[in-house]
Computed example of a mutant assay.
Amino acid sequence: MTRIGPASELGPGSLTRSGRYAVGNNGNHFAVTRKCRHLGGDLDEGSIDADGCLVCPWHAAKYDVQTGRMVRGPQGIFAKIPGLGALFKSITRVVPLGRATVEVRDGDVHLVDGE
């Protein structure tokens, strides 16, 4: 088990890094592996959108943190390439982001285990 920090410092909409994981709070604490499946953007530098999804800081690909699957492909110039978003979304059906269990104990957020 790895201590992330005080739960008060990881409020809704917050993200931080813990080893290979991006740890965040979208109303619930979560942890997913940090590297975007598109071009390896560091997801702990991204954001959490209104849907509670993790958004890549590089090209705005969007991930469901419960499943690790990409739910919107890369945006910007990449969104204009036919089939690219669908390709990356299908890749994450087979190889989703890794996920880890996160618990709050005694006011601290802990990374318990990971896939």
Score class of each variant (00 low, 15 high):
3 R>E: 15
4 I>D: 00
4 I>A: 01
5 G>M: 05
6 P>N: 14
9 E>W: 06
9 E>T: 11
9 E>K: 15
10 L>N: 07
11 G>V: 07
12 P>C: 07
15 L>W: 05
15 L>A: 04
15 L>E: 07
20 R>D: 06
21 Y>V: 01
22 A>G: 02
23 V>Y: 02
23 V>D: 02
24 G>P: 14
25 N>D: 09
27 G>E: 12
28 N>F: 14
28 N>L: 08
28 N>T: 11
31 A>M: 01
31 A>F: 04
32 V>Y: 02
34 R>A: 14
38 H>C: 03
39 L>A: 15
41 G>R: 01
41 G>Q: 00
42 D>P: 03
42 D>Y: 06
43 L>C: 02
44 D>H: 15
45 E>Y: 04
46 G>L: 06
46 G>R: 03
52 G>D: 08
52 G>I: 12
54 L>A: 13
54 L>R: 07
57 P>G: 08
57 P>F: 03
58 W>E: 12
58 W>Q: 10
61 A>R: 05
63 Y>G: 04
65 V>I: 13
65 V>H: 11
67 T>S: 15
67 T>H: 08
68 G>I: 05
69 R>F: 10
69 R>S: 10
70 M>N: 07
71 V>W: 14
72 R>F: 14
73 G>E: 03
73 G>S: 04
73 G>W: 00
75 Q>K: 13
77 I>N: 12
78 F>W: 14
78 F>K: 00
80 K>D: 13
80 K>L: 15
84 L>G: 02
84 L>S: 02
84 L>M: 03
85 G>A: 00
85 G>I: 03
88 F>D: 03
89 K>D: 02
90 S>R: 10
90 S>D: 07
90 S>W: 05
91 I>D: 03
93 R>A: 09
94 V>M: 12
94 V>A: 08
96 P>D: 01
96 P>T: 02
96 P>L: 01
98 G>E: 09
99 R>L: 03
99 R>Q: 08
100 A>D: 05
100 A>N: 01
101 T>K: 11
102 V>D: 07
102 V>Y: 10
102 V>G: 05
106 D>R: 06
107 G>Q: 09
109 V>Y: 10
110 H>I: 04
111 L>G: 04
112 V>C: 04
113 D>F: 01
114 G>Y: 01
114 G>A: 00
115 E>S: 11
115 E>K: 07
